[in-house]
Design a protein around this nucleic acid. Structure first.
Lengths: 345, 345
DNA sequence: TTGAAAGCGCTAACAG
DNA sequence: CTGTTAGCGCTTTCAA
């Protein structure tokens, strides 16, 4: 039985058992252990059993760092979202995590805080880990990010938006159209005086633009708007609407860039003795659980964060596992949206 | 000028520039590039400049997989939480991410779904990546998980709980005490008939136990309780309370295992014409934004998820960077909690 | 079916 | 201050 070289523990670091340890115990060569674990069909049943026992005896856990270096594939996916404090992204993160895990991938989470520069830094740090794929939120990246993304040759899926010039694959919906539909919806129900409470991120801006554009086409040029900083919090929605009212704004419908803000707006309205939706209707965005299940007086644009996550992860997996000679699957998915009515107006 | 061996591109995989490429361009040895990047002080200014230029020219991004293998340190931290759908965990995740990033670490996120077996699987997958540290939620792990954790020799911080037998460091608070304090708080305000709406995870169970124990000491033996499945959602809280009321339960105060459930309970109460807190008071747990900022009629146990995350991450960093001959910093932090009053009762 | 040799890209150790 | 050498733990290639 041959001996295999063993590391000599330079810094007496705590050492986990290695393939070589297992091989020694099993009485086979390291490569046989490797195959028994990763390509069992290539190995005799006898060898497989010996290896299996040795693995249990040593408590061996493969070192994916070394494996990744050798195969140049990390089975790691970079996932960058603005925040997990927004439930809609939390749901997307969950779905992505789950779907990736099904295919043997793991997600490295980065939180960009709705900030392109922070995204760029995250991206740099993450690219150093040589992920097999990347999932980004939105289409709005710095030039440097874009350059790195293109140079990296790594499959990429952008999510939560639709646009002309994705880096690679794209899974989302049109925020501009969402805004237009929200306007059309309210106009169709007879509302005439509008106000808006919106966050300042780029997708919220697109929705607001769609909203005001559509109103403008209908002859309504003026929409008092209060822009709050991300992250959109209940409390900020509440105070933002309070400010508008204090400024003497009169409206029969309030546009909100998210359900969280809408919820705050409703609370503020109620606390001032306004009835919702009789005195003032409120429309939000995001399909939070509380919007769907309970608020008796809110309409909301329904987005399925889990769907987006699942579809995005699947698209990415397809790209990551595509053969080099396959035609590159140029994915582009419009997951759509719908307006959900929860009020009696 | 010496030449350094270069990979011969077995599978014509897309190749990112390597240290050797940079060394060639800079006209120095690879190790000098490595040092210029990681230990600039060990290198002459001239060399540093040459390397800097070569890096820019080649668009080089270091390969941390290779570096990690060589140094046996990944600068990766495993982070396992039950869910990010619960805002309190979302906040913890954010704080941990942020704090780790400050020290040059990155988090690998795993979602256990409040499930020990799922946690075990995640742990196995993550340990294969040889993280430098591990942050877990709670003290409740499978035997296999515990064995692996101990065997791994990796610094570990458990969070969100306090207990006798942590694997390593521990940052949290006593859920049992939280429950007792909630009971004491309500008793002190004169409430006498209680009901409970609670999730079925292990920490929620501890809180409920503290709550009912304290009430029992005060002679109140019966607390109608509706246990809902995790994840605790607004809608579930609402229907859980509805069920209790339908069963004829009379109460003047409702204990909820989280603010999300409390919010649902309040909505259900209001929708049935009950005034909160005049007819029924509601107490929750978690300090969500909406509880703090707005609900006029809820009391809540205030927990600072960001604090826990920050403290936990710092404790972990301290352990990860501790010298082998230093005494092991046996961290144990009780971050405490407080009850926040938002009602006028 | 199994093994030996040669790296993956980087850095620790030990000279110079 | 800079370079040489020898791995880190695994897998690929090529032989047997």
């Amino acid at each position: 039985m041959k001996k295999y070289k063993q590391r000599k523990d330079l810094k007496n670091k705590p050492k986990a058992p290695t393939l070589i340890d297992v091989a020694r115990v099993a009485g086979v060569s390291p490569i046989t252990v490797s195959r028994a674990l990763n390509q069992p069909d290539m190995v005799s049943e006898k060898a497989r059993e010996k290896v299996q026992k040795a693995v249990e005896k040593t408590g061996y856990l493969p070192n994916l760092v070394a494996g990744g270096l050798a195969t140049r594939s990390s089975h790691l996916v970079a996932l960058i979202v603005p925040t997990v404090a927004n439930p809609i992204f939390a749901e997307t993160v969950r779905a992505i995590n789950e779907t990736l895990a099904e295919y043997g991938y793991q997600a490295l989470l980065g939180l960009s805080g709705y900030n392109r520069d922070q995204e760029q830094d995250l991206l740099e740090a993450i690219l150093c880990r040589r992920p097999d794929g990347i999932i980004l939120t939105g289409l709005d990246h710095t030039d440097i990010s874009l350059r790195r993304l293109h140079a990296s040759q790594i499959p990429i899926v952008e999510t939560w938006d639709l646009g002309d010039d994705p880096v690679d694959a794209l899974v989302g919906f049109s925020h501009y159209d969402v805004g237009k539909e929200m306007a059309a919806y309210l106009l169709g129900r007879g509302y005439q005086r509008f106000a808006a409470v919106t966050a300042d991120d780029s997708r919220a801006a697109k929705r607001l633009e769609g909203f005001t554009d559509h109103l403008a086409e209908a002859g309504i040029k003026h929409v008092p708007t209060n822009v709050i900083q991300t992250p959109a919090r209940f409390s900020r929605g509440r105070s933002a609407f309070g400010t508008l009212l204090d400024q003497g704004v009169k409206c029969d419908a309030v546009y909100c860039s998210s359900d969280t803000l809408a919820h705050g707006v409703i609370t503020e309205a109620l606390s001032r003795g306004l009835r919702v939706p009789e005195d003032v209707a409120v429309i939000g965005f995001g399909d939070l659980d509380f919007a769907e299940a309970s608020l008796p007086s809110i309409s909301s644009v329904k987005i399925n964060g889990a769907d987006i996550g699942r579809v995005a992860a699947q698209a990415l997996v397809a790209k990551m596992t595509a053969d080099d000679n396959d035609p590159p699957p140029q994915t582009l998915v419009d997951v759509g949206f719908s307006i959900m009515q929860r009020d009696s107006a």
